[in-house]
Design a protein around this nucleic acid. Structure first.
Lengths: 343, 343
DNA sequence: CTGTTAGCGCGTTCAG
DNA sequence: CTGAACGCGCTAACAG
């Protein structure tokens, strides 16, 4: 149980004061070369490392940024984290990750935990529950306490802070437009409930593209998946209702790759050829798309870029102390063409 | 720029001493109900929250456990983290995640960073580079400094600490045995270089199963994938050499799902029917397996369980202060049957 | 060139 | 029942 060595131990052992040791270790010019050498040698020998907690308290600076995400077993979010890690490390920061698990309470708890001195700033993506009940008061507290934070991906417009999002609407627009250009007559939409903002934005893009082609949205080919649990069976059954009809759609835009993949499965089961009879485009950074058969054309989200940029944004805010205007950065989403569409 | 309120502020404002405030907030019986009420009301009103840094320094306890993983954009590791998060939170701990990015230097840096007061203990999975160069001296320092840590998944036998692994050998044995029982004559192995311990263990299981059936391993159907970069093309080409021969194997065991999926792709391209002409089993917790076509039979690793158990193990070590013997827990791996095998 | 003092925010003796 | 003093480990301002 050898305790870690402190500056005090060194001072006592060498018969000098703690401040002398402190200065010597920082190579201060105030200290004579001889004592510096002595102290450094001693410190080296005992593998002295400053206690980071003490430093943080002293400096009122942790060099840590906190990240709160809805879930971690999720390809997009893990890519975002990866980007955050990279950018943060480059600037000398460490990353502390908490998972809200899509729960409002857990999100609140995490924020309180992290915002109390543990971190210099926060990167947050809203939980579904928070978006559903629309209670954002915990963010006011962050603002009052002057804790810098950036919202990413799942944001809320009304919160006064920096934000970074993918161009959900634009991506959806591009995807739908592409399907319509490929002569699809009946383009279906598989989406989430409206309270999921990214879902809603993607809906908007879908509708805009329809309008551009002089079409109105047709509720009979729009389905909103309610429960999104581990069990894909429930989702699959909802999607089947869209496909197993007399005149199935000849194009589908799905707001995530899971829905798209399940739609492909249903279409195949229905005897439709992809992409000849029906073209399908998903939305995500995921890994299913690449390995499904046929591989899936998707709108890619550039999660890694979102991570790096969000971290940059936050750190700039932390270090500049500029109370400048808050910004919203939009990362454009482009289509990655694979086999589920004609070209 | 409203500064966060401290115990000192409350004391000054209310004309009492800091210790009175401290005690009142902890509901100490030493303080009169009236002053307690007064202080609590004041603290509540200003949303007082103790500074966690100060607490950590004072208590010499952070309630944080550090996690060092090779990469985060990886379904298995993200499941492990998810498990760690869950178990840690249940016990009141938070989680700090660092990524070594498969680099020895970064692993070292992360350990030094975390082990210096920031966390109460560490959960580590070795980087490939560390396993390759076999330098484990940084762990000695952890041991000397009495920092509790648990190695998971990518472990090193010789390090004196708690460990937790999947039953790689057993899982591989089961998979290979299954293929042989299904009358496969020529079962190939797609694996990693030997320095990746989990790869090696899976090789062992493969060989054991062969031996059990009176077979010897045949180097011509064993390939070790060297470079494992983002570009699957290189891996795919190596795998093709195994499939595009006169007498291709009629069974393949691959040590991860990527290799298995690529093998399926190659087999299909070669005109082989799966599972009639060739049966394939992968190894992982991944998501490709479920959505590939045909879906892939795999040995599942139970990453979440590994995470929870590793966290439990570590926290017990942290809290018990028992210098008891170190343990190695093995999590059994079972086969999840899907379409790439006959049943 | 070196040491003393003070303080980051908190909790815990120990006096009063 | 309340407060002064101390220490967690470190650094910076100020003396000497």
């Amino acid at each position: 149980m050898k305790a870690k060595i402190t500056i005090k131990d060194i001072a006592r052992e060498l018969g000098v004061s703690t401040s002398t040791v402190s200065k010597a270790l920082k190579d201060s010019h105030e200290i004579s070369e001889s004592t510096k050498a002595k102290i450094k040698a001693f410190a080296d020998f005992y593998h002295y490392k400053p206690n980071s907690l003490a430093l943080k308290l002293r400096n009122q600076k942790t060099m840590v940024i906190g990240v709160i995400i809805p879930e971690i077993v999720h390809h997009f979010f893990s890519r975002v984290i990866s980007g955050i890690e990279k950018a943060a490390n480059l600037r000398g920061y460490n990353v502390m990750i908490c998972v809200s698990n899509e729960s409002y309470d857990k999100e609140l708890l995490n924020i309180e935990m992290l915002a109390n001195g543990s971190v210099d700033g926060l990167l947050i993506s809203l939980s579904k529950e928070t978006q559903k009940i629309k209670d954002f008061s915990h963010f006011n507290e962050l603002i009052e306490n002057n804790v810098p934070f950036v919202l990413f991906d799942r944001i809320e417009e009304s919160i006064n802070c920096d934000k970074i999002i993918v161009d959900d609407e634009g991506g959806a627009y591009k995807a739908t437009k592409y399907l319509l250009e490929k002569k699809c007559i009946k383009v279906a939409l598989i989406t989430t409930p409206d309270y999921v903002t990214v879902g809603k934005l993607r809906n908007n893009g879908y509708v805009k593209a329809l309008n551009k082609f002089g079409l109105e949205k047709d509720p009979s080919v729009i389905i909103k998946i309610e429960k999104d649990d581990e069990d894909h069976e429930g989702i699959y059954n909802q999607i089947k209702k869209l496909i197993f009809v007399k005149n199935p759609p000849d194009g589908i835009f799905a707001v995530n790759e899971l829905y798209a993949a399940l739609a492909m499965k249903a279409a195949k089961e229905r005897g439709l050829k992809i992409p000849q009879d029906i073209e399908i485009i998903g939305f995500t950074d995921g890994i299913i798309s690449e390995f499904s058969s046929p591989s899936l054309t998707t709108v890619v989200q550039h999660g890694f870029t979102m991570g790096t940029n969000a971290a940059e944004m936050l750190i700039n805010r932390i270090e500049n102390k500029t109370d400048g205007d808050f910004q919203t950065e939009v990362i454009s989403a482009n289509i990655k063409f694979r086999e589920s569409t004609l070209n």
